[in-house]
Design a protein around this nucleic acid. Sequence first.
DNA 1: CTGGGCTCCTGTACGC
DNA 2: TGCGTACAGGAGCCCA
Length: 277
Amino acid sequence: MPELPEVETVRRGLLRLVQNRQIKAVELLWPKTIEGDVATILKTMVNRTIEDIDRRGKFLLFRLSGDYTLVSHLRMEGKYNTVPAGTPPEKHVCVVFHLDQATDLWYLDTRKFGRMQFVPTGMENQLVPGIKKMGPEPTESDLTTDYLAEIMAKSRKIIKPFLLDQSNLAGLGNIYVDEVLWQSKIHPEQPVNTVTLAEITVLRTNIISEIKRAIEHHGTTVHSYTNAFGEAGAFQNELQAYGRKGEPCLRCGTLMEKMKVAQRGTTYCPQCQQIHA
DNA sequence: CTGGGCTCCTGTACGC
DNA sequence: TGCGTACAGGAGCCCA
């Protein structure tokens, strides 16, 4: 499941493969993947060049010539891959971009949750709801302690769903939330407005460093998710909480437990992570 | 504002 | 072996 580090890894890999490539034609094999007036969108993409690829949270932003942007969210299992032109699409290919230099770019998506939108460049901030209301990137400069303390004081949610909500801050998904909560010794069901300033400070530091470290490891490869660029993520070897149910906590040795929090599988240490008043 | 449930999808794991 | 079922989950939606 791509979270910010995985999407960033895809962005970097894709940039090397398709920057300055021209789109000659686009085939949509799974109609729901592209939202909007599909016929017009497919036509409008033709003859544009992929000038750059940006990222906002978990969204990829393909910057096309003529000031258009293809916004792509991978959701659970979306992937990109390049193949020689004319290669018969594999089972889960949803979109084929026929590029110049005899290259096809595939968008594959096993569960078909991923979505794309096509907007004038800059308008993604207005026209893509998920981007419009997205919180700050989890970086030293964007995610300030003041901001975090302020929105946390006002929230009446519990911490795990709060951190998963992209409108609070961008980029975290189920895996990294479990990781940073374990690192910060915060129970996943701790009410947000009861987290102390000291805990918020630690949490913020852990979020920023965890995301940075995961990017350096090219993200996490779990289950069926692998990126297509010959640099399968290695961060799964670094995980300290996620997937460690029944194994000893790396800090105190207590067996890690798993429970449901807001419908999400959640692994935590019942000793280190306790709810406080 | 909040939580809960449902939807989209398919592959995998598990019980019998 | 095979079949039914539970589960995995990002994000948007509706409802209470």
